[in-house]
């Protein structure tokens, strides 16, 4: 589904973030990308989303080279991916309902469908009672739940979670990871980037370990070893 072929990313100040990495993620996999801060985890995810282009090498999404996609194709790819981020990336001037509805509106869904789906997803995620609140009125855990609701509402093929537990306490971290596992059990591909040892060791799924922009380990049932 996603394939990296000899990908390197070097920024203008000659900082090498990724160095000649290659791997493949198959449909329905749960893959964790681990590494210290600055190891290149976020850059790797940005390359999948087409938010950056590799300096060299190729990134393929469903057989198509992300670098060669036009803006319409990129928008289509991004709509197939649900993104969850450490800083939540919510739309602060929109309510909980509007934040989730926005991604459905982006896809051109009918208002009737949006009115039906959004409350359902919010109920599943457990923040339906906050439907008319703004993100600033939610706790960190609730904000991350909202981000998950937004990522799920369009039934994406892939969930990309970039340090989703980075700003959360252990209880909320556990809740978020449980939700990701449930999402994976529905058959979706999940890519989780984290440096949370506890989370990785409990998952028992594939782990790709990055260090200084290189893959140093890729194990089918990996542990957090740095």
């Amino acid at each position: 589904m996603i394939r990296f072929e000899n990908v390197s990313k070097i920024y203008q100040d000659n900082a090498v973030v990724l160095s000649n990495i290659s791997f493949e993620i198959k449909e329905g996999e749960f893959v964790s990308i681990v590494g210290k801060s600055g190891a290149g985890k976020t850059t790797l995810l940005r390359l999948i989303l087409g938010l950056e282009n590799p300096t060299s090498g190729e990134v393929y999404f469903k057989g198509m080279n992300v670098k060669d996609m036009d803006s319409l194709q990129l928008q289509e790819v991004r709509r197939k991916i649900g993104g969850i981020f450490q800083d939540y990336r919510l739309l602060s001037a929109k309510t909980v309902y509007e934040n989730v509805a926005y991604v459905m509106q982006v896809e051109g869904k009918e208002n009737r469908e949006i009115d039906e789906e959004v409350p359902k997803v919010l109920e599943v995620i457990g923040i339906k009672d906050k439907i008319n609140n703004f993100p600033s009125e939610l706790s960190g855990g609730e904000q991350q739940r909202l981000a998950i609701a937004r990522a799920l509402v369009n039934h994406p093929e892939i969930i990309i979670a970039d340090e989703p537990t980075g700003n959360l306490d252990p209880y909320n971290s556990y809740e978020v990871v449980s939700l990701l596992r449930k999402i994976h059990q529905t058959g979706r591909t999940v890519i989780l980037s984290t440096h949370d040892r506890e989370v990785i060791n409990k998952l028992g799924q594939r782990v790709i370990t990055l260090e200084n922009g290189r893959i140093i380990r890729d194990e089918a049932e990996g542990k957090f070893i740095i």
Partner: peptide, 18 residues
């Protein structure tokens, strides 16, 4: 003030005109 939000809108696949 909305710079970050524009980035988020791009990530969720909104078209440029949207």
């Amino acid at each position: 003030n909305s710079k970050e939000e524009i980035g988020t809108m791009r990530v969720v696949g909104a078209s440029d005109w949207f």
